[in-house]
């Protein structure tokens, strides 16, 4: 199976690549549209800032490419946020795959939300074998609001979308590649979709 990890100006790509390889799959890290379009699974990772990431995607025509994908595609962290409509982070229009906005956490607790938190209201094959007491690793200051497309919620300051899905597009705010066995199981579930 050909798995493509989209290469762009966001950190964390190495960890995602390592995690996929640990599961016994091969993958390529690429910004080549042909390779991405022909892959059976696509992962859209990301740590970084929304506006510069969107600018980079547009400049390299990856924005329209991502929206046009029809195979199972998984956004991670900033990847999930960029798949929403709009982000308050530097007033950024995003890809608009999910009908939700990305907002900054109010400073009622420490921001960023950093560390292990449990995810609840799980409704997707992505979470086969996972319960709402299982913890995953988060690092983020912005969150996607709850929407029709929310397939897992998390509670920190307020409830937000820990994971989303629409058609072939899946996304997690947390880092499955850094979430020990729980994250491995979620990645495996995605790769076996």
């Amino acid at each position: 199976m050909q798995i493509a990890i989209i290469k762009y100006n966001a950190g964390n790509i190495k960890s995602v690549e390592n995690a996929v390889k640990r599961l016994g799959y091969d993958c390529i890290v690429t910004d080549n549209p042909e390779l991405i379009r022909n892959a059976e699974k696509v992962i859209f990772p990301g740590v970084g800032e929304a506006s510069s990431a969107m600018q980079y995607l547009k400049k390299h025509h990856l924005d329209s490419l991502i929206k046009s994908l029809t195979q199972p595609t998984l956004g991670i962290c900033l990847g999930q946020q960029l798949m929403c409509k709009y982000s308050e982070e530097n007033d950024t229009d995003c890809l608009g795959i999910f009908d939700a906005d990305v907002k900054k956490f109010p400073p009622e607790e420490l921001v960023p939300h950093m560390g292990w938190n449990n995810i609840e209201n799980l409704k997707s094959a992505l979470f086969n074998g996972i319960s709402d007491e299982d913890n995953v690793y988060f690092v983020h200051s912005y969150y996607a609001e709850l929407s029709q497309e929310t397939i897992a919620t998390c509670q920190y300051i307020l409830p937000f979308s820990a994971a989303m899905q629409k058609d072939n597009f899946y996304a997690t705010q947390f880092h499955p590649e850094k979430s020990a066995w729980v994250g491995e199981r979620i990645l495996k579930n995605f790769l076996e979709l």
Binding site: K14, S15, N18, A19, K21, R22, Y137, V139, H175, E177, K178, S179, A180, W181, G183, E184
Partner: peptide, 8 residues
């Protein structure tokens, strides 16, 4: 370490 470890 990064290849082998699945936590931060």
């Amino acid at each position: 370490i990064s290849r082998e470890i699945n936590i931060p």
